[in-house]
Amino acid sequence: MVVQTFTAKDYKTAVHNTWCPGCGDFAILNALQAALAEVQVPPHKVAVVSGIGCSGKAPHYVNAYGLHTLHGRAVPVATGVKLANPELTVLAVGGDGDGYGIGAGYFVNAGRRNVDFTYLVFDNEVYGLTKGQGAPTMIKGLRTKGMAEPAIQDNINPLALAISSGYTFVARGYALQPKSLAQLIGQAVRHRGTAFVDILQTCPVYNDLHTKEWFGEQIGGHPRLFQLDDTDYDPMVHDPTNLEEVVAKKVQAIAKSYEWGDRIPLGVFYKIDVPTFEDQLALGDRPPERRNIWNRDLSALENSFR
């Protein structure tokens, strides 16, 4: 048997890209393709599902089954794809407005289910396609150049929300550190269960506050962005049956997720290995054609009404 080897190139398409020059999305796309190559999953066994917005266009640029769906609905669609064919490697991608604003209900409830897919949020704090309004992660009091006024609505903390919603893998990446981001996405894809990665992303057109320069700053001799991996932080729940440990690790991760400003941690905040939704339904990895649904004998069910 020939072992196929896939490189990042195998996950690229020739489709005309409409993102702005310098957009952080390019870097995330490259990292995603590198991660798929690292995991070595054949393109036809991958489905990339997106919402609406700049990030929503990502599936068109990935050589894999691509479903560019509705605003805020990528997560339910991805859930449906994965449950219909658990053999697939499924990724949902979308922006912060898509996932935490119009899709907030689905973001929360996906955490409760733990279906085995990866959810990448391209978090640039603004609604780019509609010309720069503040998104749910825009910090209260800040005003980017596209906003009429400083934000008077509070920002949500996506990592804390994910952890309290039940996500079993919660991480933060940064678009412009391609190597570590690719590695993080690879870890997320390998995780069994819903893996969530909030990816800090620059929008050179509308976010003039949290720019490439701002993220890259050194504060008091330390880089603003640092990897949790380089510290003694341990995100892993080692005994999922130990409720005390689970709670302690969640509390630790939530506390860590509030570190923001001069020092911003990147990497895995929380991870636990528990049965997936598919495990609980005993779906195995059976695609539609291997379900016992196409020729049902219903005489017993029918006769129960006699």
């Binding site: 489905a47 599902v49 669609v77 449906g80 794809v81 219909a84 064919n85 689905y106």
Partner: peptide, 16 residues
């Protein structure tokens, strides 16, 4: 909203 979108996803993936 989730109900119909999840069902659309499953339909695209080949399940009735």
């Amino acid at each position: 909203v989730s109900a119909i979108n999840m069902a659309v996803g499953a339909a695209h993936a080949g399940l009735r």
